[in-house]
């Protein structure tokens, strides 16, 4: 009881801080100078219709590199941790009930659709909302549906690891090419900017997003696959 009241006091202090913050805050009337630069010069400098993509991939490409690295480290740690679980009784997999006819049929219909949707999302990242991370997540969910429809199926971890490392290396290589052929690391003006709003435009942004999408998708699939295998082992 005493502990809870102490926590309540701490929380009240936080509430006061939050209230003062909200009370002193006024909604912006115009863009901040940085954002204004992005908005006015972004379409001509980067050529991406989606300004968020321009910020994520080009102007703040280092953030994305760090983010992808964090995801990679997370997936590696999770794989390491889950491999520490010792497998005992494999006959327990027998009690898994197979998925119903309707679900397996629907998943056969839906999985290609989801893969295509994921590819659409990350190829069109510079034109419509979405991008590598969302597309990767959708591809990973397609594999989740595969595992749900058939609990005994197994993902091939070697292929997943290969896709992941190849796309990671390609991402960094394209970034390094930017130093030599264009203005700096992860500069997208290696290729021609093309016509604004076309699918093949904005320099290497579609290419970069394809690699990010494959990398994120294989990492998330890796996590899910490891989790699902530990389910079966015990």
């Amino acid at each position: 009881m005493l502990r809870n009241s102490l926590f309540l006091i701490v929380l009240a202090a936080f509430a006061v801080i939050a209230f003062t913050l909200v009370n002193a805050w006024h909604p912006a009337e115009s863009l901040s100078p940085v954002a204004e630069h992005y908005a006015t010069n972004g379409p001509t400098e980067v050529g991406a219709a989606n300004l968020v993509t321009a910020v994520v991939v080009t102007y703040r490409g280092f953030d994305t590199l760090g983010e992808v690295t964090i995801l990679f480290v997370t997936a590696a740690i999770i794989g390491f941790f889950l491999s520490l679980f010792h497998s005992e009784s494999p006959e327990q997999t027998d009690r898994l009930m197979p998925a119903s006819e309707i679900l397996s049929t629907a998943s056969k219909l839906l999985i290609p659709f989801m893969l295509v949707l994921g590819i659409y999302v990350f190829v069109n990242g510079h034109l419509t909302p979405g991008g590598g991370f969302q597309g990767g997540a959708i591809i990973a969910s397609a594999f989740v549906l595969l595992l749900l429809a058939d609990p005994l199926s197994k993902l091939n971890h070697r292929i997943i690891a290969m896709v992941e490392s190849v796309s990671g290396v390609a991402f960094v290589l394209i970034g390094l090419l930017g130093i030599f052929l264009a203005g700096g690391f992860l500069d997208n003006r290696i290729l021609d900017l093309g016509t604004f709003g076309a699918l093949l435009s904005a320099g290497v942004i579609p290419l970069l997003y394809i690699f990010i999408g494959l990398k994120v998708g294989s990492e998330l699939t890796n996590i899910i696959g490891h989790l699902q295998q530990t389910q079966k082992n015990r």
Binding site: M97, S100, I102, L103, A106, F113
Partner: peptide, 20 residues
């Protein structure tokens, strides 16, 4: 098309699980 495919499947899965 997507709604037509997914919705009946999800209701089927829920009712099957509930019955089980």
């Amino acid at each position: 098309v997507f709604v037509i495919i997914t919705n009946p499947v999800s209701s089927h899965v829920i009712s099957r699980a509930a019955h089980r």
